[in-house]
Simulated assay, not measured.
Amino acid sequence: MLLSIITINYNDKLGFERTLNSVKNQSYNNFEHIIIDGGSSDGSKEYIEENSANFSYWVSEPDKGIYNAMNKGIKVAKGDYLYFLNSGDHLNDSNAINKACQHLKGEDVVYFDIQVIGENKTHVKKCPKELTFKFLHENLPAHQATFIKKELFNEFGFYDENLKIVSDWKFLILAICKQNATYKYVEETFSTYYSDGLSSLIENQALVKAEREQVLNEEFKPFMNDLKNRYVLERTIRTLRKSRTIKLLTKLGLIHEF
């Protein structure tokens, strides 16, 4: 089985080197590494040229944004599964890809947990075993720890380049919730993500919310109405649980705990 690892970069030479070294040092070698650089001016292009023997394909030219760059990688990828490891992020050890490939047995999407390194703390972002609409409408497995079958992009289309931040989320929620794509969760920490990316910046959270609401209202409006009603009920239950009267009635055994 051939795996395609796609790395996009723009003017992040130090992070780029960290990413490429983590791929270069893998014990598994049946993969192609595709580099999509957005025409960097910080020495990244020269670094790519110096190490071009390690890449199956590379290009350094201006693009129209993150998802335009990722789509360029998808178009030239030949692997059975695609994996996006963008500049700055890295695989956790030299056997990461080898261990991951043992789980790529036919499901459309295979996802792992990921280590997140922030300015003040480090934590592991855990994923659920079941990808419910409730989870996916506001979250998703990290693309740095997710493998997607190439044929999914051929069937459902590439990333929506009209969205600036949440197109990978849109692709996944449509694939899982509308197209019934199969998936598998592996409870292992696979890679490391540095939370200084575009979608993680505080100043971009309003755009993330707006783009998600746009997609949800276009694609899942009936579901969203049901979900809003559920949230109202959940808030009501939380309020009731805090009530002294409810606590007393529960203690006396006159009502069951809820």
Rank of each mutant, 00 (worst) to 15 (best):
S41V: 14
T192S: 15
L172S: 01
I6M: 05
R18P: 00
H103F: 15
K24N: 13
Q205E: 13
N11C: 10
Q115Y: 07
S60E: 10
C177L: 08
R244Q: 07
N120Y: 13
Y183K: 06
K121A: 12
E61H: 05
S243F: 10
E213M: 09
I237G: 01
K228A: 12
E107F: 04
T7S: 13
E130L: 08
L240A: 13
D42A: 02
A142L: 10
R244W: 08
R230E: 15
Q102N: 14
V124D: 12
F258V: 03
D80P: 00
L227Q: 14
N51S: 07
K209Y: 08
V76K: 07
A96C: 07
F190C: 03
K64M: 09
F171Y: 13
Q214E: 12
V124G: 04
K209L: 11
D113R: 12
Y231R: 13
K228L: 10
H143E: 10
A77M: 04
H33Q: 11
L104P: 02
D226Q: 14
Q205R: 14
E218Q: 14
E138C: 05
N21M: 12
K184A: 14
V116L: 13
F190L: 14
Q26L: 03
T182S: 15
I8T: 15
V76H: 02
I36A: 00
K129E: 15
L249D: 08
E46W: 03
C177R: 13
G118K: 13
L233F: 08
Y159T: 01
G15C: 10
H90Q: 12
C101W: 04
T122M: 12
P222Q: 11
C177T: 09
A96T: 11
N204M: 10
N162F: 04
S41D: 12
A175I: 05
E161Q: 12
I8E: 02
K209H: 08
M70H: 11
N162V: 05
E130T: 15
T236I: 10
Q144P: 00
F220H: 07
